[in-house]
Nucleic acid binder design. Structure first.
Length: 136
DNA sequence: GCCAACGTTGGC
DNA sequence: GCCAACGTTGGC
């Protein structure tokens, strides 16, 4: 099982909306690297849900429930989407500034590739962020 | 609101 | 195929 991080602007699509609608459609990705990450996802993979722009923090965990398929909103037919569900909301969000202040997370894609919206997370990074959640 | 980083487009 | 111009993302 792999780990990921997905970004969303909370005024467009927030974690609570995913909780409310049970199954979320992760569409609208128009970046090849992000799309390739979507294609690499398999059912059961888990991801951190990050609120970009407003909040700038990881607010919860989700899970892939349907592997990539063509995004109908992409008229070129090049890009894909996945379906996701909420797993649990963080007790305390883990902010970008906290992540930046954690030396063992200095290579995380969230910092290294700040514009990428769908990125892999290593098992070590996953564990470290869960530790941060429980230590805040 | 600004702007750095960076991805994409299109002329050549 | 290069690269300048342009557009977008997202932190600050």
């Amino acid at each position: 099982m792999a780990y990921w991080l997905l970004k969303s602007e909370p005024d467009v699509y927030a974690y609570d909306q995913l909780v409310a609608e049970k199954i979320g459609h992760w569409d609208g990705v128009r970046n090849y690297q992000a799309a390739n990450n979507l294609k690499a996802m398999t059912i059961g993979d888990e991801f951190f849900f990050y609120h970009s722009n407003i909040g700038r923090e990881i607010v919860g965990i989700g899970r892939i429930v349907k592997e990539s398929y063509p995004d109908p909103s992409d008229l070129t037919g090049k890009f894909v989407m996945v379906d996701v569900e909420a797993v649990r909301k963080f007790k305390q969000p883990v902010s970008l500034s906290t992540i930046k202040a954690t030396p063992s997370l200095s290579n995380i894609a969230l910092i290294k590739q700040s514009r990428l919206s769908v990125m892999p997370i290593t098992p070590h990074e996953w564990d470290m962020i869960l530790k941060l959640e429980n230590s805040l």
